[in-house]
Design a protein around this nucleic acid. Sequence first.
DNA 1: ATGAGTGCAAAGGCTTTGCATTAGG
DNA 2: CCTAATGCAAAGCCTTTGCACTCAT
Lengths: 151, 151
Amino acid sequence: MRSSDIDVHGTADEQLRRAGQRYTANRRSLVDALVGSSGPVTVIELLESIDGMAQSSAYRNLAVLEEAGVVHRVVTDDDTARYELAEHLTGHHHHLVCARCGAVIDIDVPNVIEDELRSLSAKVARAHGFRIDHHRLDLVGTCGNCTAPTD
Amino acid sequence: MRSSDIDVHGTADEQLRRAGQRYTANRRSLVDALVGSSGPVTVIELLESIDGMAQSSAYRNLAVLEEAGVVHRVVTDDDTARYELAEHLTGHHHHLVCARCGAVIDIDVPNVIEDELRSLSAKVARAHGFRIDHHRLDLVGTCGNCTAPTD
DNA sequence: ATGAGTGCAAAGGCTTTGCATTAGG
DNA sequence: CCTAATGCAAAGCCTTTGCACTCAT
């Protein structure tokens, strides 16, 4: 399942309506920007690629979109939040993170591991009285650019 | 391997010396506070349990301790950093996170999964030109308190 | 004595909020 | 019309930094 295979805007619209929200031009712009990215992006990056949107609108609308389940807020190592489309729009995936420059790349993980993680979740939920919603798996290292000779 | 089984202060001292740093009273207090916790704690929590240490000293010393490899900075969902002892002092583990209140609890993961993750890392490293240092696995959900009837 | 460590207060950077204006149903 | 959404500016919150003082070697 890839963003290109689904009617992202239609789905977003529907999810927002269901949440009692409108799918405004600004919100559409944000979703468009996210569709075009290969991994979670920062608010600043979004603003750069959108032009004319107030910073406060970006933050407010991303919050609305997250609340409605259209986008997902991601925090890695640096303390700048990043956003990506929700998993039902992108497919389940995990992240490869550069600890140096903060770059984040989407990666897929073998089903064997996903299965193991699901059963682990069930076990841990029981043991600790949690309800587990999802798991998060990041591989953290240094990307090609940051290892480059220029260092 | 548990904190109680190792000479944490001796190790910390040695690591700091190796990094050209001193193991001062403040740094020792921070390590002590971390030894007593069952998971990553926020700087504010550390300050509450220490008494008399300036906030700036906490941040500065935690940075030094992290640089020396004594502690590890952890970021989860809220944007407050948390700190824990480095893995060679606590053993390799992962985190159970409450998305509601932010609580973080250490958990162990079966070796099968750890093995799978290691080989996944190697594969992904090759595919993306990364050098992978470690992985991070969080199970995210809602803890018992936050699911309680009082809601 | 000399540089590292400390505390206090001020500054920074990301994010949120207040308020008046604009736009959508 | 009437509420939601927007932009601008101000405020908040966590974290970092500047500076003078203190401590350890």
